[in-house]
Design a protein around this nucleic acid. Sequence first.
DNA 1: CTGTTAGCGCCTTCAC
DNA 2: GTGAAGGCGCTAACAG
Lengths: 331, 331
Amino acid sequence: MPTIKDVAKLAGVAVSTASYALNNSNKVKEETKNKVMKAAEELNYQKNGLASDLKRTSTNTIALILSDLSGPYYSELIKGVQDITRTHGFDLIACSSIGGSASTALKFLREKRVDGVIILAHNIKDETIQSSARQDFPIVVLDRSLDNEFVNEIEVDNVQGAFTATEYLIHKGHQEIAYISGPANSHDNELRLQGYKNALNHHQLPYRSKWKISGEFTREGGYKATKMLIAQNDLPEGIFYGNDEMAVGGLQALKENGITVPEDISVIGFDDIQLSEFVSPPLTTMKQPKYEAGALAVHLIFQLLSNEKVENYYKLSTELVERESVKDRNA
Amino acid sequence: MPTIKDVAKLAGVAVSTASYALNNSNKVKEETKNKVMKAAEELNYQKNGLASDLKRTSTNTIALILSDLSGPYYSELIKGVQDITRTHGFDLIACSSIGGSASTALKFLREKRVDGVIILAHNIKDETIQSSARQDFPIVVLDRSLDNEFVNEIEVDNVQGAFTATEYLIHKGHQEIAYISGPANSHDNELRLQGYKNALNHHQLPYRSKWKISGEFTREGGYKATKMLIAQNDLPEGIFYGNDEMAVGGLQALKENGITVPEDISVIGFDDIQLSEFVSPPLTTMKQPKYEAGALAVHLIFQLLSNEKVENYYKLSTELVERESVKDRNA
DNA sequence: CTGTTAGCGCCTTCAC
DNA sequence: GTGAAGGCGCTAACAG
């Protein structure tokens, strides 16, 4: 690969001149600029971005770390991130945290390959983030709470959301409500469980551990959990799924067993993923403000990058989306 | 940020020794190694990945360029890419080509920031790719055909797929079949249109331009195109949508106008996106081997990286997925 | 306006 | 086993 040196040599100028010309500085005469450009073209010269970043000590790019790049449910969030990043003229790259400590994500988090990082990946350990946090390296986490002055947090109000979902079921006349939970190590899940319990408690309904089954936040998991619930042979009146993905799996399990939603049992989810609108029946769920979360995250990064003070913690609220998977048992 | 120099100084060794120690070379005594490690920890040292990549002249990462990161329909493809990349111990980053010549994608394509690139982004111009192509910089394109010895192509057989889809409708007794097309500048779209025409022709059916309407490959576009078709007041018996996304929009338009699928009109799509299974009625479509395409793309990159010869062109075939959106009019 | 030069942070021969 | 020194490709003072 030709370097700037080669270009300079061919054009018969010094490297610095070549550099100036290539970067369109006005320090260079049109004539020389043309000469350099022609040389560059002739050699098919492409600058080495790594080298210039190293020199500049900034990359103009921010990284979005996701637990799995192929998970289709970040769409809205990514959009928020993308839009704002672009208006600031920065680059955005997405990378996955699959693969533990050897993952791409960690490399970007630890080594100074980007100017800022947004994390939405439960499989990254708190300590990892802690030890990467430092002055002048903005990190925003969207999936956890972390006490560190260099990391900023944006959370949706999971407790309130789960409370609302559960209470909605209660208001609609359901007394026996199961919770299909996400993985135990998920902070989000913990908070949603909490909200569920709070609502139960608030309405003097008992919390029964037989009605808390783990579904790992996956469709498959929701399917299996629901099958287990059915196997217990004592169906609740309503099911609150820790996320929509599991609810979709649950719907399928229910259908397979000839249980109709919402006639026989009501179902409510959490997230409002794209699919929710299309499953049958359309899923009632708690909508997360994903676009806003993404946009806010980038926003914070840029403020931090320009050394402005920002709040360390933001909480976004969820919103009930009524569709057709919950029956009004009072009616 | 502390550099390796600081670590060396604190540990009381030379930078080279520190470097060896940090990279776990066996050239260094256990004792010194420990000393260095301790110093690094104390300073919360994080190596600068840019610098080491610059020195090594390879990054161990490959980039996947997509036209829009938030488009949820690459899921399977990304998975294929991701899986294979990981088994090779390489990093994967995804970036978007939104933003034209200022886009992140182009930066990665032009400057040597990654070891290889996979492109699935119709909004990147052929010439851009051409001028970035060079020895030792593997590029695989999934969305076009390009005559360049340094770029490799993987295509699904769009012509055959569209032919099969159209013929399927014909076999099921449909004579009048509309094609809702993607954007004019899309190579994929052109080929699908070709396949559609071929099938018509093959069965002595006339091609009528009033039944070719453009839907831009988006849901919204499919919706609008369908509305236009309805407004023409002369509905065909079947509609072949250039992709599922448009079909989903079309289904909605049809429903709004009280036209039932498949009783009143049959619908077939192309792609087999995740949603297709869930819409109502479940969409019959041509499944693209997306995972395979992604996996193959990475595979090629690695072969190229190790200087193996590979074919310059691969064609993958599609597969009919029968669901419930097509009626058998012969029955 | 152009050329000389000194690093950015790291790795890696080459001597010792 | 360890240290000194050169250089990856580029930018940006600083001179001229």
